[in-house]
């Protein structure tokens, strides 16, 4: 299988801020890859380099076999970009927006119109097609923006945080649309700060932090890297939290994490339900009143925490 996107040692600096710090990435053709990272990790900068909007200071990137710098003009014909902000014109109707994009892809007048109608139908925007976008909901705008990226049937599609700011229902709708899309064989690079989103949509995930890919693999592979399960415990007071911590210390196979505001303890464990039983016995012996306890598989947030030492969605971390 060939790679639709290859990045080697991409570096991009803004003054003293390093947005990309030697980013390497390979995205196999026909797959959907999630670029997962917190705000400011360099996701959008990477997408801008791949879509010819920005020149990297160092390194090289090829998309669909074309050099993003030297063959930018040629490359733009085979990519689609749907950005973080729905880049649709408020004063145009949905149809006019898509028709304009078609004309600018040089599909010709008749083909542009036909394609616009086709996409409006596919994205469930037929009824709103001839109304100005101004009156669309957030979810409708995003769908229209995504439709815009698909006008020329691109072989590589870039989705920069496609569901940021959407309500849960619209988000589910977008996920369905994106899943549908990849069945058609399009290569997709999706950036997201939602672990759930990458987990659900991506064949493989690249975790990015401070301008670098720090881990790669399928969702399962990444979870394996972190190993085992998590024992989650909720108690009523901080005093009990401290007692629990001490009592369970030697069951932990990694660093425990306690949240004093929620009186919540997370313990990485190995051994399944027998560990859970043992934990409950010990807590009972210490007369700790357990509000909730259970075992769960590691989430991508655990992956992130293990790899970087901070949570994926901690925005004030920097």
């Amino acid at each position: 299988m060939t790679d639709a996107i290859v990045a080697e040692g991409l570096v991009k600096r803004y003054g003293s801020v390093v947005a990309l710090n030697g980013l390497n990435l390979k995205v196999p053709e026909g797959t959907i890859t999630g670029l997962l990272g917190p705000n400011g990790a360099g996701k959008t900068t990477a997408v801008r380099v791949f879509t010819t909007l920005l020149d990297a200071d160092e390194g090289a990137a090829r998309v669909a076999g074309l050099d993003v710098r030297k063959q930018a003009g040629e490359l733009r014909k085979s990519i689609g970009l749907s950005g973080q902000y729905a880049a649709v014109d408020d004063n145009l109707t949905g149809f006019e927006n898509l028709d304009m994009v078609g004309r600018l892809y040089h599909l010709g007048r008749a083909r542009s119109r036909e394609r616009a109608r086709e996409l409006l139908a596919r994205f469930d925007l037929e009824d709103a097609a001839d109304r100005p976008v101004k009156g669309y909901s957030g979810g409708m705008r995003r769908r229209l923006d995504l439709a815009g990226a698909l006008v020329a049937k691109p072989s590589v599609l870039f989705l920069d945080e496609p569901t940021t700011g959407l309500d849960p229902r619209s988000r589910l709708g977008m996920w369905d649309v994106i899943e549908e899309l990849v069945k058609g064989g399009t290569t997709v690079l999706l950036t997201t700060q939602y672990l759930e989103e990458a987990d659900r949509l991506a064949d493989q995930i690249a975790v990015i932090d401070r301008g670098k890919v720090i881990a790669e693999g399928t969702s399962d592979q990444l979870k394996e890297q972190v190993g085992g399960e998590r024992l989650e415990l909720s108690v009523a007071t901080n005093a009990e939290l401290g007692i629990s911590r001490t009592a369970l210390a030697d069951l932990a196979v990694g660093a425990m994490e306690s949240d004093e505001r929620q009186h919540h303890l997370t313990v990485p464990v190995a051994g399944g339900s027998s560990v859970l039983m043992e934990a409950i016995r010990r807590l009972d012996a210490e007369s700790v009143k357990v509000l909730d306890v259970g075992l769960r598989r590691p989430t991508l947030d655990d992956v992130f925490l293990t790899l970087t030492g901070h949570h994926a969605e901690d925005e004030d971390e920097k």
């Binding site: 801008r48 909007l53 733009r76 950005g83 600018l104 892809y105 040089h106």
Partner: peptide, 8 residues
């Protein structure tokens, strides 16, 4: 951004 990503 969108315009600049198009082959126009």
């Amino acid at each position: 951004d969108r315009f600049r990503s198009l082959p126009m």
